[in-house]
Amino acid sequence: MEKKLYKSLKDRKIAGVCGGIAEYLNIDSNVIRIIWVIFAFGFGTGILAYIICALILSDNPSEYQ
């Protein structure tokens, strides 16, 4: 089966982007959230990237049940 990147419906705080990336990479979602905050405040690109991902990524269809 081919791996695809989706927003998570189960592990979401705002839009499910970090939870979806964590599921895709098979790591803890809190690690992704910490990295995302570092990029948001350290480099200024995290907020824009999160908004773009939240708009582009679709919800995980296997979590609708």
Rank of each mutant, 00 (worst) to 15 (best):
C18S: 12
L57S: 01
I27K: 10
T45H: 15
W36Y: 08
G42E: 05
M1Q: 15
G20D: 01
I51A: 15
L5K: 04
Y64L: 15
L5V: 07
N30W: 08
I34Y: 13
L5M: 11
F43W: 14
S62E: 14
A54Q: 02
E63A: 04
S8G: 09
N60T: 03
G44V: 06
I21F: 03
G19Y: 00
G20W: 00
I34K: 11
A54D: 05
N26A: 15
G16F: 00
N26W: 08
G46H: 02
L55H: 11
Y24N: 05
I38M: 10
Y6V: 02
G42N: 05
D11Q: 13
I56T: 07
E2P: 07
Y50R: 04
F43G: 08
A15L: 08
R33H: 06
V37E: 14
Q65P: 07
I14F: 15
Y64V: 12
S62M: 11
I35G: 07
Y50P: 01
F39C: 08
K7R: 12
S29I: 02
L9N: 13
I32D: 00
A54H: 01
G42K: 05
V31E: 12
D11N: 09
I52W: 15
S8K: 02
A15N: 11
Q65R: 12
L9T: 07
S8L: 05
G20V: 00
